[in-house]
Design a protein around this nucleic acid. Structure first.
Lengths: 203, 203
DNA sequence: GTCTATAGGTTGATAGAC
DNA sequence: GTCTATCAACCTATAGAC
């Protein structure tokens, strides 16, 4: 590992990501961020104008590569992917996002009822939800699209809960595993969700 | 419906619950709350001393009856309940909590990585998790306890995501259903989670 | 691009009259 | 128990020197 020089803008994004994840958007002041990043207070306004557009930038920086990777993995699974392959394409990119600061941040975005965050959520996720619903429809011809939408919803919720609690509540995580084990979590979640998706449709 | 006089303390709790759910704990000021409740600013300090202990009171007021009801329904399911019965006992009390303000509030509690909230979460939920893990262990003798802990975790996540998005994103909810239909959501979730729990344990 | 200084507003909490 | 008035601390954002 060679220590690279990091520019001010990146230092601010890194610090903001960490603190937003830890304490939330509102509880984190620009002063907290510039102190953590070891830059001047005015730099954040110079580079991002307002706090809201900083939040936007922090989220977009992480969400977009994850979504690109999701679509890429879905492509790679071929024209007729199995349920498990589709779920892995959906879950793996976010669960492997290797900055641990990303986990609580993502969980906050996913769970927040804030209109501001919901808008962001929609902007980034609508196309993903559509593409994956299509793929799952094809793999599970017995299910109606609304039913698939529900179940994809449940899967995203299970995932976001794991991300939210992975770091803050290791003791709620499976024992034995010292700390959080991404591979195990992913495998367990895929098993659970795939079985859920294959359940026959109710009345 | 007869309009009852409501005391100041209850008015504060009601307003705080609504605003905390809508905007979060940090983004909601005591002034917002007293304006919504139509009481004086000083009243909140008189009745609750600090903002933190107000948050505590708001959460406890809703979580405790839900948890009581969960244990009660589990008792009523008899000595050898089926997976579906156990899941309904776990999910139904919270999904039927009829104040719509409770939904986003619960979702916030469930998803928040804040240490303050995690502490509350543990205090109220540890006994529930243990009791339900026992019941599920008995109903699914093929699964190890860690595996059951994971799957209960996933189920809680799916539930919290539904609560979080039920009101803010009705268009992500199954189409046709105008608004949010608790019974449908509960039935779909129980079907999904029961199938997930019955999946054979991985390697 | 980076800094200091500060304007202008909000916050949680309290003192003290009624 | 309820009010007004106020404090001290904090906030975002900007102006202007370097």
């Amino acid at each position: 590992m060679i220590a690279r020089p990091v520019d001010t803008k990146t230092k601010i994004l890194d610090a903001a990501e960490k603190l937003f994840g830890q304490n939330g958007f509102d509880a984190t002041s620009l002063r907290d961020i510039t102190a953590e990043a070891d830059v001047n207070l005015a730099a954040v306004n110079y580079h991002f104008q307002t706090k809201d557009s900083l939040i936007d930038a922090v989220i977009a920086r992480r969400v977009e590569p994850v979504n690109r990777k999701r679509l890429e993995m879905l492509e790679l699974a071929g024209p007729n992917p199995q349920v498990e392959q589709i779920l892995i394409a959906f879950l793996s990119p976010i669960m492997h996002a290797d900055f641990s600061a990303v986990f609580p941040l993502m969980a906050r975005i996913l769970a927040s009822p804030d209109v501001f965050v919901v808008r962001l959520f929609k902007r980034h996720l609508t196309v993903i939800v559509e593409r994956f619903t299509d793929a799952l429809s094809q793999a599970l011809p017995g299910l109606s699209r609304p039913e698939i939408a529900w179940r994809l919803h449940f899967t995203a919720g299970a995932m976001s809960h794991v991300l939210a609690r992975a770091l803050s509540m290791p003791e709620l995580m499976p024992p034995s595993s010292a700390g959080f084990d991404t591979e195990t979590a992913l495998a367990q979640l895929v098993t659970f969700a795939a079985a859920g998706f294959r359940a026959p449709e109710g009345i």
